[in-house]
Each structure stands twice: as structure tokens, then as C-alpha cells.
Design a protein around this nucleic acid. Structure first.
Lengths: 179, 179
DNA sequence: GCCATACCGTCCGAAACAGACCGTATGCGC
DNA sequence: GCGCATACGGTCTGTTTCGGACGGTATGGC
């Protein structure tokens, strides 16, 4: 499979989203991603316009230009595309997850700052994680009855676990640092 | 503070590391980062050569070229630099943390793949997180007696919390999916 | 008829990125 | 004392990614 090494995680986001939702325009992708994957895999929306084109050139997507006026293309998965996606899903995942947490960075360097900084940071983080948890729980509640969707929500559980872990940590730190 | 918006998280990693360790060469940074921050904030080492130069131009670091032969520069913090770092530590942190977890992505799209994929993925992840936990616990044990270092290890606790959360999730998933 | 607000898409300069590459020491076996 | 392997220390380069500014076009409401 020689195309495989021209593909990035973003490519699979596009492929996968189209596989789940059916044929989509870039804008469709943008909205779909914003509501779901966007929460745990960030990238700028501009990529959702360039990436499908690339994938089409590689033969993994097939573009269908509709209407001359506004030129918007609907992309659909080719057989190649589906195969590539399934191959990716089946192969091992060597990379460990990566975090990018400014708060953690600040905590690491805290001894250079003022004594009060840590407590303030912790307070902020507690608030932020609580808020995010609320958002996730809301999503979970909203779709709890739809079985098909519920299945997809499994990553939401992971997100919640992570948020709770972070919340626990910062809360404990706050207690220690004194409010 | 007009320099502030020319600074990225990486800039603060450099500034902070030098603040903690004292004057350092790029290579010193490379090693120090590899042993600590590298675990939760990845970036290519090449940046540890270019970034200090940039910071020196901005007046936040001060370069001292020693010996003509191998030209290696030792960087030390200027007053400006320390002030900038402290200001950063004191200011609020608007961004939420970001995760980049290929495994989570695969899980999200799992219904496109084969039925067995999820269980395999979960098994892999359990192993990977267990391994990482072992590494962290090892670090923790090694430095437990050194008080000064122990303080810095606080971020390690956060790392462990996160790893455990992930481990719990994937273990549970593995149980459900059946081995 | 006018304004506000979604909707939809493009573009661009600046960073980040991975990782190949290249010398120079230093040790170590033989 | 020679040859080799390994760690040390650093540079370079071509892609991607990244924000986010920008610019049109519908659509509805007043």
C-alpha cells in the first residue's frame, strides 16, 4: 500500500468522517468535526478544504462537482479509500498519546514564579475542567436514547475519564496549596 | 510587554528550563528536556538550537560564546527574560489542554473496521499505558528522597493520573469487548 | 430596501516538524 | 596501535501545519 505513507492522521479524520456520514462537502465536514472529533483532535478548518482534494488525487475520494454557480464539491469514498481506512484501523498504533497542556507547563516551572501562582492556576483549571465535564455530560445525556449514536459516544467516555483525572489532580493540588 | 506575542509555548520551555537549571547550552537543554518535559510536551530538538537564538535577539537571553574551536554558546537569562517568564506564570491560561491520541481516533471510527479491531486496539493500549506507568513510577521512586527534585515531580503526578485514567478506560473496554 | 447574521470558502506568511546528515570524541576489544 | 562502535554536539532542508484574516453570498427580519 504505497499511498499509506502520504497520509496523516488528518487524512484519516476526513476518510473516516465521510465513511460514517456518507458523501459530504468540505463544509459538512467542518460542522461534523466541530461537533465531535474537534473536541479531542484539533485542527484548523482550512485543512478540511485542502485535504479532500489531496485524497481525491490519490484516488481515495471521488469528487462530484455540482452546480456551476457556487462551486462546491461533494466527496464520496472510493473502494480504495474504504480499504485504506480499514487497513489503518486494523494496523497497530505505535505512538503514545500526546498532551499539550499549558497549565502543566506552568506548573512545571512554578518555582520560578510567585508563591500564589500555583493556587490560582489550580483554581482556574478546576473551573475549566468542571465546565468541560458539564459539556460532555450534556452531550451524553442528549443522545443517550439513540442507540446508533450512543455507540459512537464511546470516545466521549474516554474524554470524561481524562477530564475527571485532571479535575482530581488540580482539586487535590488546590487543597494542598490552600485556597 | 510587546515581546510577549512573539513567544510560543516552546519559548517558555526554553526560558523556564534555563531559569531552573542555570546557564545552559542548547545541548544541555536537549538533554534536560528529554528527561522531563519531553514526556508531556513534545517537540523536535532542532528547535532547541534555533529558539534560544531568537530569544537572545529579543533580549530575553544573553549568549556567551566560549572557545573558538567548537562554537558552542551558553545562554543565560537576562532580567527581561526572567520578568517575561514570571509574567507568563502569573497570567491566566485560557486554552484547554489538547490531546492527540491516534488510538482515540481509531476508536471513534471503529464501526467502519472489523469487529475484532477494537479488542486488539484495547489490548495494545492497555500494554502501552502500563508500560508508561512503570516508567513514571520508576522516575518517582528514584528521586523520592531528594526533596528539591521531588517538588518538581509534581507534574509527574498529573502524568500518572492521566495514564491511569486511560488505562482504566481501555481495560474496561477490553472487558466489554471480550478478550 | 437595509442591515445583521449565518453560510461557505480561499489565501498567505510564519512556525513547527521530522529526521537525514555530518563531523568529533571516546572507549574498547584485539 | 588499529579499527570499530557508540555517544556527543549541532546543522540543514523541504514539507506540513497553523491561525486567522479576508471576501463573497444567501437569508431573514424589520
Amino acid at each position: 500500500m504505497v499511498v499509506a505513507d502520504r497520509l496523516s492522521p488528518t487524512s484519516y479524520v476526513v476518510l473516516g468522517t465521510i465513511a460514517l456520514r456518507g458523501p459530504s462537502t468540505s463544509y459538512d465536514l467542518k460542522r461534523a468535526v466541530g461537533r465531535s472529533i474537534g473536541y479531542f483532535w484539533h485542527f484548523p478548518h482550512a485543512q478540511l478544504y485542502s485535504e479532500p482534494q489531496r485524497l481525491a488525487e490519490l484516488g481515495l475520494l471521488e469528487a462530484e462537482t455540482e452546480s456551476e454557480g457556487r462551486r462546491r464539491r461533494t466527496y464520496r469514498l472510493t473502494e480504495e479509500g474504504r480499504k485504506e481506512l480499514r487497513a489503518w484501523l486494523a494496523e497497530p498504533t505505535p505512538e503514545h498519546f500526546q498532551m499539550r497542556d499549558i497549565a502543566e507547563l506552568k506548573l512545571f516551572f512554578n518555582e520560578v514564579g510567585d508563591p500564589g501562582d500555583v493556587a490560582r492556576l489550580a483554581r482556574e483549571q478546576v473551573a475549566a475542567h468542571r465546565e468541560r465535564i458539564a459539556v460532555y455530560e450534556d452531550m451524553q445525556a442528549r443522545y443517550a436514547d439513540l442507540d446508533a449514536v450512543a455507540k459512537r459516544m464511546i470516545t466521549l467516555r474516554l474524554g470524561l475519564e481524562m477530564e475527571h483525572a485532571a479535575l482530581r489532580f488540580w482539586s487535590a493540588l488546590l487543597d494542598e496549596a490552600g485556597s
